[in-house]
Simulated assay, not measured.
Amino acid sequence: MDRREKRQAQYVLANMVVDLVRSRSLKAGHHLTEQWLAQELSVSRTPVRAALRLLADAGLVESRARQGFFLAKDADEIDRSQSLTVPSTPEQDLYASVVRDRISGGLPDSMTQTEFARRYAVNRIVLLRVLSRMADEGLIARNKGQGWTFQPGLDSARALRASYDFRVTLEPAGLLLASFFADPVVLNRLRSDHETVLAAPSPPPPGILFELDAAFHETLASFSGNAYFVQAVQQQNRLRRLLEYQGYENRHRIRIWIAEHLAVLEALANGDRQQAARRLTAHLENALSASPSPDGTVEPIAVPQPNGRGSTRALGCNPVPDVHAGAGS
């Protein structure tokens, strides 16, 4: 693990400490001992000490000479917006650059490893990690000879429309299957992950946002109890990964789709699967209307309504503001 990766791990651990403090409803002045935190979080004391220093810099804990670290405020005064922004790693930076360049048409269908290294001025280890990750995600494949080839994605308006038609037909139906069961523990964890992003002062990197988005849809599919639903949703997520990346810098749209996800989760928590299915349908239709075109333009794609007219408003949902990037679907 290099220096930037260690630094990132410290920020992640610091946020885990905050979550632990909030879950235990600790009061200001509580002594946060390194040994207790290390046991609770299953890590060694050294990274805990580094995480506590970060929290002290943020004003969430107080460092007292020869005494240790103490909580600076009651847990109920610490909201999710005070979570620390986790810095990116070299791999994340390179991944984002490759994705942006591929979407914009700046990269050919096939490239050698040397061409990648020359273009992005990165070392071989970082490059191989990124290419391996992209291969695992179905974005790129190693050629039989030398080089790598980008895999087909949603690269036309027609393909995008077809993808959403398929998903609107499939995903809400999965919520209504007789075999459907929403695990309350998984449901709460998914809701907590969304609330954390919604309350953060700035959005996390695009890769994390996509994983949250994909996890939402794949988790709902897994609740269906039908492996074919899960496989279909996973395939759609692989196809749309590149296209979604170009819109994740739109903070307003990010907040919209997270709120729509939370509305679906709320209906499921209340045991109202019919309402959850309607909300999921509305969310997917809103996402299509807000999707950037595969060619990079930002013209909204009309969503057909029962009255036969195209609209960017989905039934059962409030109108989506005029934002056409970062569909989050």
Rank of each mutant, 00 (worst) to 15 (best):
F69M: 04
T112Q: 09
S88Y: 04
S110I: 06
R64F: 07
R53N: 12
Q113H: 14
E40H: 12
Q92K: 10
L84R: 01
Q92E: 15
A117Y: 04
R66Y: 13
R80S: 13
D109T: 15
E91I: 01
Q67H: 11
I125P: 01
R66D: 09
D57Y: 07
F70W: 11
L52W: 03
G106W: 11
T112D: 10
V43A: 11
S81P: 03
Y95W: 13
S44F: 10
R124H: 14
L60P: 01
G105C: 06
R49S: 09
V126W: 01
G105E: 05
Q67R: 13
L84W: 00
A117G: 05
I78A: 01
V86C: 05
D76H: 14
V48T: 00
Q82S: 12
L55M: 08
A117Q: 14
L107G: 01
P87L: 06
T46S: 07
A75E: 01
S63M: 13
F69A: 01
L84N: 01
G68D: 04
R66A: 10
S81C: 12
Q67W: 04
D76V: 07
I78C: 03
L55Y: 02
A96D: 13
I125V: 12
L84Q: 00
A58I: 06
S104K: 13
R49Q: 08
Q67T: 06
R124F: 11
V99E: 10
P108H: 10
S110W: 00
A56K: 02
V126S: 02
A65Y: 15
R53K: 14
R124P: 03
A96S: 14
E40I: 07
L71K: 02
L71Q: 03
E115F: 06
L84V: 06
V43F: 05
L94Q: 03
V43H: 08
S110V: 09
T112M: 08
S104Y: 04
L54P: 04
L94D: 02
F69P: 00
S63V: 05
L55C: 05
K73N: 05
P47Y: 05
L107E: 00
E115A: 15
I103P: 00
Q82I: 03
G106E: 12
M111P: 00
L54Y: 04
K73S: 11
A72E: 05
L60Q: 04
E115Y: 08
V98S: 05
S42E: 14
P47H: 09
S97H: 11
S81A: 15
I103L: 07
A75F: 03
R53F: 07
E62N: 11
G59R: 10
T112W: 08
L60C: 04
V86H: 06
G106R: 12
E62D: 09
R124S: 12
P87K: 07
R66S: 13
T89E: 04
I125H: 05
N123C: 13
V98Q: 08
T114G: 09
A58D: 05
D101V: 06
L55F: 06
F116E: 00
P90I: 10
T112G: 13
S42P: 03
Y95S: 02
L41H: 06
